[in-house]
């Protein structure tokens, strides 16, 4: 996948946990434009591990002078966000992938309703800029626990269509009220924790919304688990996956090439065949169908794991 070295030209704390980073081309060349909802994958050489995390772009999709992301520090996470917060300073060069959009606005919609929980606000920041240019009707509902944590407040324009729900202040989001009474042609986009996405899907189903009008993005970090071993069918090699490592990362560390793009179980690029499985695949992706998952013949190595005796991959 295409990536280039970009220079960190700004960093700014948006809240105690969230920092904005800006990247520009070292020679000032224009970067590829994107569409609202796109993300980039940031490579972080942290000691002897190469971390790769996907972050939604928050800058203007039609501004190629730089890319901006907002990163929440996950102290209990796998280390990528902590690395960015602690080690990356203005002037550093980082390898950044070309933007990819798995959460684009459906431009056939007559109105866009965006629902963000916490750091899930980031893709909408760029989409708002796109919608302002397209002059399309929209509504944004942003839920955060407390005002201090609501980093999005620093990123959102002051518009009447933007509604902020701070649960600490007793102003929780009422999904029934948000989804009830929307005009025909409304599409709903949800980004945030899985619980929020499920709640939106449930409320929408109760109100009779068809599934095609619902869009969501969970940006999941690969979940940790117990270490396991996989065997590669072609070479007969075995690769061990550590507790805090994903299968994809372990394969990469062993120099086994696997195609990838989102690294979050959403895009389908890393789909890998399973030739034998004695045990239980732990599927964490949003790509494979339920039937494919239960057949145990495919795995998404970016997020999914294994528990059992033997797992042989078509690699």
């Amino acid at each position: 996948m295409s990536a280039q070295m970009l220079r960190v030209t700004a960093r700014e704390a948006l809240s105690p946990l969230v920092t904005r980073f800006r990247f520009e081309h070292p020679e000032g060349a224009a970067l590829p434009l994107f569409s609202g909802g796109a993300h980039v994958v940031v490579e972080m050489p942290d000691g002897d591990v190469l971390r790769r995390n996907a972050y939604s772009l928050i800058s203007d999709p039609l501004d190629g002078s730089g890319y901006e992301i907002a990163v929440r520090r996950e102290d209990g996470g796998r280390g990528g966000s902590v690395f960015l917060h602690r080690q990356v300073v203005v002037g550093d060069l980082l390898r950044i992938s070309a933007p990819l959009n798995l959460f684009a606005l459906d431009l056939r919609a007559k109105k866009h309703v965006m629902i963000a929980g916490g750091i899930g606000i980031t893709p909408f920041v760029a989409q708002l800029k796109q919608l302002a240019r397209l002059q399309m009707p929209f509504e944004l509902h942003y839920a955060a626990r407390s005002r201090a944590e609501a980093a999005g407040l620093a990123l959102l324009p002051d518009l009447p269509q933007i509604h902020v729900h701070i649960s600490d202040e007793g102003n929780r989001m009422d999904l029934g009220a948000v989804l009830g009474g929307q005009p025909l042609g409304t599409h709903v986009y949800t980004c945030g924790p899985e619980g929020l996405i499920d709640a939106v899907a449930e409320t929408a189903a109760r109100l009779g919304w068809p599934r095609g009008a619902l869009h969501s993005e969970v940006f999941m970090a690969p979940p940790p688990g117990t270490p396991f071993t996989v065997t590669l069918a072609r070479s007969g090699r075995t690769v061990t996956v550590g507790a805090h490592q994903s299968l994809l990362e372990a394969l990469e560390a062993a120099q086994v090439p696997v195609d990838w793009s989102c690294r979050g179980g959403a895009c389908g690029r890393c789909e890998t065949g399973v030739s034998a499985c004695h045990g239980q695949l732990e599927h964490h992706d949003h790509w494979l169908s339920d039937d494919e998952k239960s057949s145990q013949t495919k795995i998404m190595p970016c997020v999914s794991r294994f528990r059992g005796d033997t797992l042989i991959l078509d690699l």
Binding site: L179, G180, Q182, P183, L184, L207, G208, W209, A213
Partner: peptide
Amino acid sequence: ALADAHMGTQ
């Protein structure tokens, strides 16, 4: 009827 309808209408 369509103009007055909301999402969820069949």
